[in-house]
Design a protein around this nucleic acid. Structure first.
Lengths: 153, 153
DNA sequence: GCGCAACCGTTGCCCGCGCAACCGATATCG
DNA sequence: CGATATCGGTTGCGCGGGCAACGGTTGCGC
């Protein structure tokens, strides 16, 4: 074994692994009454922040860390429920623009309160200011590393 | 909106959400050459640490945070590849004991080096001692909160 | 302009997993 | 002791998502 984890490192790693999934499951469960998946909610958020409330499929897939096919299927559901519309781009006939409908925006706003409260309850409010800062720095740093390894590979 | 997230909180939350999935995907990819899923690896680890390298299905499912059916399917794969055996308990004829085979133990040991190195490269080595400590405290605290809400509900 | 490469989105196929239903086994209580 | 509830594990079903393959579109080099 090249270099094992010491007790501190192992403790941190195990705590992270074990809690991570449960945290996401809890957030997902709190969002269920709004008939939204966490993934669906993320779509609505990204679209709501975009120009004219629309994004190209590939851009959206990139932001969501989703494969092209995965995004197609996720959009299928959101289109069927009327939260999102597909409209072909006039500039480039290859691209499809996912556009947030008024109803989708309303659904997102409706769910936002509960979702934010859920994030607060399960995560933010359990941490002090220093820990919140640490959380941001930790994952920013890890994210930088991942981006680097991806571009290298 | 009851109480929104301020910039620090939002920054921490977004960094966490965006990096989380990528981190897990990177660890998964590093484990792929060993023909193991991250989930499979966790099974082997838990079994290797158990008495006589075996656990009841329900206990194992609990530790993995997996549904009964999910564990059945995951074991199917591990049994087929010879890493795990199913053996009925003599004490309680309802229970199945998942037991780690010698081959399974060897496979885990073979993968452990790479996996630990992967965890180091993507996570641990990107953090200083204080951040590692903070990571453990953060997720321990969040985990306590989740456990409490689960037992209450 | 033409041919070829790269790009964009969709589809078929497969896997992993949760839920509900189910069966056999065990515990509990009258 | 017998009836009923509870437990432990498996199975059918549906859903979400990745991979490979494909058709249509655009950009690039000649």
């Amino acid at each position: 074994m090249a270099q094992w984890l010491n007790d501190d490192e192992m403790g941190a790693w195990r705590a992270f692994v074990e809690v991570n999934a449960h945290l996401m499951a809890a957030l997902e469960a709190d969002l269920a009454p709004h008939r939204l998946t966490l993934g669906d909610y993320e779509v609505l958020v990204h679209l709501s922040e975009a120009d004219e409330r629309q994004l190209r499929m590939c851009d959206l897939a990139l932001r969501l860390g989703l494969s092209p096919s995965g995004l197609t299927r996720r959009l299928d559901g959101l289109v069927k429920s009327g939260h999102v519309e597909r409209r072909p781009s006039t500039a480039d006939r290859r691209v499809m623009l996912a556009t947030l409908t008024d109803q989708g925006l309303a659904a997102m706003r409706d769910a936002a309160d509960d979702h934010v409260a859920s994030v607060r309850r399960h995560l933010i409010d359990r941490l002090d200011a220093a820990q919140i800062d640490a959380l941001r720095e930790i994952f920013t740093s890890v994210g930088d590393g991942l981006g680097r390894t991806l571009t290298i590979a």
